[in-house]
Amino acid sequence: MQADPRALRFAAAVTTIVLALVLVTGSAWLLAAQAVVFTLSIFGVSPYGMVFKGMVKSSPRELEDAAPPRFAQGVGLAFALVGLVGYVTQITPLALGATAAALFAAFLNAAFGFCLGCEMFLIIRRLLPAAR
């Protein structure tokens, strides 16, 4: 599977805005919506990516492998779910911490094209000694 890198950057930018709004408004519903978006993106149906495709008709200069960003969406989903647990149980540091971590990663991706979620793969893999 290949992906348009511009659509990925666009999706990261929208994710950044949504997560910033979650922190500002404290809306668990908005975070839940973003969690759904993360989940869909793992399966290759990114709603933000579709918005981009609807607006931009030109084709990208180069395609890139879709597996790394999909994995990163999974990492994003994990943080969003932890954040949701925090909001629902009103453990504020958990809610803010997890959402801020997801915002941090989304912004790095949008502004610098750096995929923090992708980098997590090897680090997680290193921490799991048994599974080889």
Binding site: L103, F104, F107
Partner: peptide
């Protein structure tokens, strides 16, 4: 919170 996160990420 948002600002701190974005500055740190930058």
């Amino acid at each position: 919170m948002v600002l701190v996160t974005l500055v740190a990420a930058t």
